[in-house]
């Protein structure tokens, strides 16, 4: 993970800003995807999912769907997502 993102994450953790955490972890997942590190990608996506769920962000449904598609989680049918599978 790049330094800037790392610092931002620590800061968001410090103030328990879960919506920002969801966003930043999603960025980290994208970054890992870019470098082909699948292991790290699913780790960060999980983090993003939990914080999105906690913040009541519709995007939680998308993360959940992505995780479930790869056998990393159970599909939560009653999560209403943004419908647009923006993050692949």
């Amino acid at each position: 993970m790049n330094e800037v993102l790392h610092t931002k994450l620590l800061k968001a953790h410090e103030c328990d800003d879960t919506a920002t955490l969801a966003l930043l972890y999603a960025q980290a997942a994208d970054e890992s995807q870019g470098t082909g590190d699948t292991q790290a990608m699913f780790f960060f996506l999980t983090q993003a999912y939990i914080f999105a769920l906690d913040s009541g962000l519709p995007v939680a449904a998308d993360y959940n769907r992505r995780l479930a598609k790869h056998g990393r989680d159970v599909l939560q049918k009653d999560l209403t997502g943004s419908q647009l599978d923006t993050h692949r």
Partner: peptide, 10 residues
């Protein structure tokens, strides 16, 4: 989260 190892949530 991560209950089945990092990034594995089942």
């Amino acid at each position: 989260p991560h209950v089945g190892g990092p990034g594995h949530n089942t």
